[in-house]
Nucleic acid binder design. Structure first.
Lengths: 250, 250
DNA sequence: AGCTATTTGTCCGTATGTATT
DNA sequence: GAATACATACGGACAAATAGC
């Protein structure tokens, strides 16, 4: 069945076959895979080859290996609405998940060019930089980096604790009315610090979501970037389609 | 200049310096970096150190290294509006880009479980499967896979040619009024056929966008998945923020 | 088609510091 | 303490891709 004559390694072939079976519904989310011995016999390869394939698939997030229990197809990904504007805490709580935020870094810094232009302030102006690790069911899920200009949010540093919703602080403590938002989705690869914090391999893909929120005067009042393990979530949106005229002038 | 005495490795320091230079506009998108020898002299380190820093930066997508040519700061990504519902042709044309569609596969198949449930038809019902390669400025950009139930679109196979907008065929030839859409964004890694077609390394991240369009009777009339090289695009959205009550019941 | 210059890709050997055994 | 393995870092040499003439 497997082809040992070409350049593709055996474990890569096994990976592809199992991956295909998962995509095509031979195995469904939550299903237990055959045990390693059975897989060895099924594909006529050694246990080392099977284990390597399974290990890499688990790194890709398709399966989960639990010692003493077996190997299982990963559960469905977290569904996140693209239009949700709250930070992690809000969107995860809305999913009835057990989310926690852990502060990694909290300090006043002078803005660099990127942050200054997003918040429409001068390069060098002071902002609170807040970097937090997000855990879902105690597993690392993502990293949130938010910037708060001190001119808008004096003393905010004292209000920030673990597990707090900065979204609520802005609204309730500082009485700021958010009116519009711009959101940008991209993909980056986890490296160095991020792969360490998120306990994933380097080059694991992360969604990167940049978000700028504006008040009723069109002034930017919030800028944040968050990174979230791409294999754990999917984003969705529902749209009402407008008549043709809408598209013609875009 | 570089500090060899502390815990941070030399190549990591180099990475940070170059990254800062890119963020702060010392090097702009499209610019060529000094060659490796010049960088060695500039920072007084060996070529191995420079190469390691450059290699990791290229993995992060900040720069592109081309043998025989040099090292360049990555171009700006294509901005794509998440709300755009047209396929590739439409959204790329709107960006004044030179996009082309190349048919890879065009055949009538019996639906599998996934497609049948998306289109709300029976497993085994006949659909036209259309797989197309999308090129932007002659570089591969993505792959579009669309399904058209023959019961809704008889003879559609004869209407499909390279570079055609299926969006327009649905609207104009079949007089179908699209009313709502569901769109789902995820990330997958390019493998085998896809990495070959897209001329990228395996495990290069791709946006995966699944889209279902419904008519005024809430009946699904279109299902497609497209994959697009994540390092070439970013998705954005502008939102008007609604009052609190909106969030409370979600 | 050459030919050459430039630049990155790959390999060699060596040395050092830091863990691990 | 000794032996081993590994990552970092340096210097050199040649191969391969690109571009201009």
């Amino acid at each position: 069945m497997m082809d040992n004559s070409n350049a593709v390694t055996l474990y890569e072939q096994i990976k592809l076959v199992i991956k295909d079976d998962i995509i095509n519904g031979v195995y469904n989310p939550g299903d237990q895979l055959p045990n390693e011995k059975q897989l060895c016999e099924q594909y006529n390869v050694s246990r080392i080859t099977i284990r390597r394939a399974l290990k890499e698939l688990s790194k890709e997030g398709l399966i989960e290996i639990r010692q003493g229990k077996g190997t299982f197809v990963s559960k469905e990904k977290l569904d996140i609405k693209i239009l949700d504007l709250g930070g992690y805490t809000d969107c995860l709580k809305s999913l009835h998940h057990n989310a926690r935020m852990q502060i990694i870094e909290k300090q006043v810094i002078e803005t660099n060019k990127e942050v200054a232009s997003a918040l429409n302030i001068k390069e060098g102006d002071e902002v609170l930089k807040l970097k937090r690790l997000v855990l879902d069911q105690d597993d690392p899920l993502g990293i949130d980096i938010a910037y708060f200009p001190l001119s808008l949010y004096p003393d905010i540093i004292d209000k920030i604790t673990d597990n707090i919703s900065t979204f609520n602080i802005i609204k309730k403590d500082y009485k700021i009315t958010m009116a519009k938002a711009y959101k940008e989705l991209g993909v980056v690869l986890a490296q160095d610090e991020y792969s360490e914090l998120l306990e994933c391999t380097p080059s694991e893909p992360l969604f990167s979501i940049k978000k700028v929120i504006y008040d009723i005067d069109n002034k930017p009042v919030h800028y944040s970037t968050y990174y979230i393990l791409a294999n754990k979530v999917k984003y969705y949106i529902n749209v009402d389609i407008l008549p043709d005229e809408y598209y013609s002038d875009h």
